[in-house]
Amino acid sequence: ERVRARYDYEAQNEDELSFKKGDIITVLEKDDGWWKGRNGKEGLFPSNYVEELE
C-alpha cells in the first residue's frame, strides 16, 4: 500500500521517517497511530500525516 504525505514531518527519533508534503511512502506495517514505511529510508511515522492514494 502506498500513501501520500499531507504535511511535512521531521523525525524526532532515529527510528522515525522524515518526509515532505506530497512524498509517496510505501506502508510496511500499520499500528495504532504509528505506521512503518519506506521512502528510500525506513521508519515510523504518524498515520494522521498521510492519506491513502486513490
Rank of each mutant, 00 (worst) to 15 (best):
R2P: 05
F19Y: 02
G43K: 01
P46S: 06
S18W: 02
A5G: 05
L17P: 00
D23H: 05
T26L: 13
K41E: 10
D23F: 05
E52S: 14
K36D: 00
Y9Q: 04
R4W: 05
R2V: 12
E52M: 13
A11W: 03
G22P: 01
K36Q: 05
F45T: 03
L53M: 13
W34G: 04
G43P: 02
R4K: 10
I25L: 10
S18K: 01
K20A: 08
L28M: 12
L28V: 10
D8M: 03
N13W: 06
E14M: 10
D31V: 15
W34Q: 06
E51L: 05
V3D: 02
S18D: 06
R6L: 15
V27N: 01
E10I: 13
N13A: 10
G43V: 02
V27A: 04
N13I: 03
R6Q: 08
Y7C: 15
L17E: 00
E16Q: 14
G22C: 08
R6W: 05
K36V: 10
E52G: 12
G22E: 03
R4T: 07
D15Y: 15
L53E: 08
E10P: 03
L53T: 08
F19S: 01
N39D: 05
E51S: 07
F19G: 00
E42Q: 09
W34S: 05
R2T: 11
I24L: 09
S47Q: 09
E1Q: 14
D15F: 15
K30E: 04
L17Q: 01
A11F: 03
G22V: 03
V27K: 02
R38G: 05
F45G: 00
E52Y: 12
Y7L: 12
E10D: 13
D31M: 15
I25H: 02
W35L: 04
D31Y: 15
D15H: 14
N48I: 12
K36I: 10
E51F: 06
Y9K: 03
R4V: 13
E51H: 07
D23M: 07
D32C: 13
F45E: 03
F19V: 01
Q12K: 14
G43M: 02
E1I: 15
R38Y: 15
A11M: 04
G43I: 00
D31W: 15
L44Y: 15
S47D: 06
L28P: 00
Y49I: 07
E10N: 12
N48D: 14
N48F: 12
Y49E: 00
D23V: 04
N39H: 14
L44R: 14
Q12N: 10
W34L: 07
L17W: 00
L44I: 15
K36A: 05
D31E: 14
K36T: 07
E54K: 12
D31H: 15
F19P: 00
P46Y: 06
E14T: 10
E51W: 06
F19C: 02
I25E: 03
A5Y: 01
N13M: 07
D32P: 08
D32A: 10
K30Y: 07
Y7I: 09
F45Y: 00
N48T: 12
D8Q: 05
E16P: 03
P46N: 08
K41I: 08
E54S: 13
F19I: 05
R2D: 07
E52Q: 14
S47E: 08
E16D: 04
K30S: 05
